Simulated assay, not measured.
Amino acid sequence: MTLSVPLSAQLSTQLSVLNHRHVVSSPSTNSELIDAIRDSTLCADKVHLLTAETQTAGRGQRERSWQSPRGNVYLSLYHPVQMPVSGLLSLIIGVELAKMPVIQMLNKQLQAQGLTPIGVKWANDLGFYNTQETDKNTQETDENLIYFSKLAGILIEPVWRASKLVGVVMGVGLNVKATPVLTTKTCEGMSYQALSLQDIVEMTAQTIPVQASNSPLIELPSLEAIYQQISQALMAAMTCFEHIATEKKLAQTDYMDNFLQQFDAMDALAGLRLRVTQNHNGEPQIINGHACGIDTQGCLQLRQDNGKLAALFTGRIDVIGHA
């Protein structure tokens, strides 16, 4: 059972148009919204937003667990759709999340100090690769791997009712103040480490001594304000996705071209050397090459060692070098 709690009057008003409900705890905000749409507890023709302070059974991609300590954001937005949902949507969401004021504020500081900014990692994550230093405390040792510092994950799930596609649920988990402690089991073999926005604030503060700066330390906005920023990003992503879908019918590319330009500027894999592991008939197949952005279908483009360009729809990504 979830317990609804009141938010500030200002935030409540701002999010009321999204039929917002905030709870102390949810098994999974995505699952809760999907179930409510399927059993008609919530109207499938309207937008619905659910936020939670923690999750007891949070989910990531491919049913991986998503640790949900308090102090972070767990948010799901249901949006009715009139068209099939493609993998391009998660990348559009990633770009819109990277444009949020809180991310832009931190990126400005990171770039001013010559550090890697927060970007979008194909296909569902927000964070960055530190090509100068890796943390191998909780993962198997591999001298070649460069670990991904993961701030946020995106989980998109279509919602069906009576065998008809009625909408999509877009879930976002963002580490704000609490950094999940990953183990070999909880990271499930993936080459990444968890990072929070607060970690970045402290990292940038250590680079420049306080007494040497006239500016105050960066202060993160409240979780309530971040709920609003994320929900606005998700709504903007749906608008962009719908425009791109309409353009395809009209043989136009303005929105797609603009999105691809934005993605290229935020691509966390840009120029990195990758090892991509795919499953073919139960057998792993490994492809090496350099990341070359995405195509108009949202597929990762990999320049293989043989010079050929491969478009990859899925696969495990390991970074094994950089330009």
Results as ranks from 00 to 15, higher is better:
34 I>V: 13
47 V>P: 04
53 E>N: 15
49 L>D: 00
59 R>K: 15
42 L>T: 05
65 S>D: 12
60 G>Q: 06
64 R>P: 06
51 T>A: 10
74 Y>H: 13
77 L>E: 01
31 S>L: 07
31 S>W: 05
47 V>W: 04
76 S>T: 08
54 T>L: 10
40 S>E: 15
53 E>W: 04
46 K>V: 10
85 V>N: 11
65 S>I: 11
41 T>N: 07
74 Y>W: 11
55 Q>E: 10
61 Q>N: 12
32 E>V: 03
62 R>V: 11
75 L>E: 09
68 S>L: 09
53 E>R: 14
39 D>Q: 10
46 K>Y: 04
51 T>M: 07
58 G>E: 08
39 D>S: 09
56 T>E: 04
81 V>N: 03
47 V>D: 02
43 C>K: 07
45 D>H: 12
85 V>F: 11
77 L>H: 00
53 E>H: 14
40 S>M: 05
39 D>N: 15
76 S>D: 00
65 S>L: 08
80 P>M: 02
39 D>Y: 12
66 W>H: 02
39 D>W: 08
81 V>Q: 02
71 G>P: 09
59 R>D: 07
32 E>L: 06
41 T>C: 06
84 P>G: 07
71 G>S: 10
72 N>T: 07
52 A>M: 06
33 L>A: 01
67 Q>G: 06
78 Y>D: 01
62 R>I: 10
65 S>W: 01
68 S>M: 06
56 T>G: 11
51 T>K: 03
81 V>L: 03
84 P>F: 04
67 Q>L: 14
70 R>F: 12
54 T>K: 09
52 A>Q: 05
45 D>C: 11
86 S>G: 05
75 L>R: 01
80 P>S: 13
64 R>Y: 05
63 E>H: 14
34 I>G: 01
75 L>K: 03
73 V>Q: 03
77 L>K: 03
52 A>E: 05
33 L>S: 03
52 A>K: 08
72 N>C: 11
74 Y>L: 13
79 H>V: 15
83 M>P: 01
58 G>P: 07
34 I>E: 00
68 S>H: 07
86 S>I: 10
60 G>L: 08
56 T>R: 04
40 S>G: 03
84 P>C: 05
52 A>N: 07
45 D>W: 02
61 Q>L: 05
64 R>S: 14
53 E>G: 15
46 K>E: 10
68 S>I: 06
80 P>G: 14
34 I>T: 08
74 Y>V: 09
56 T>W: 05
57 A>H: 15
40 S>Q: 15
57 A>C: 12
77 L>V: 14
71 G>E: 04
83 M>A: 14
43 C>H: 11
63 E>L: 12
32 E>Q: 12
34 I>D: 01
47 V>T: 14
64 R>K: 12
52 A>Y: 02
71 G>L: 04
40 S>D: 15
53 E>K: 11
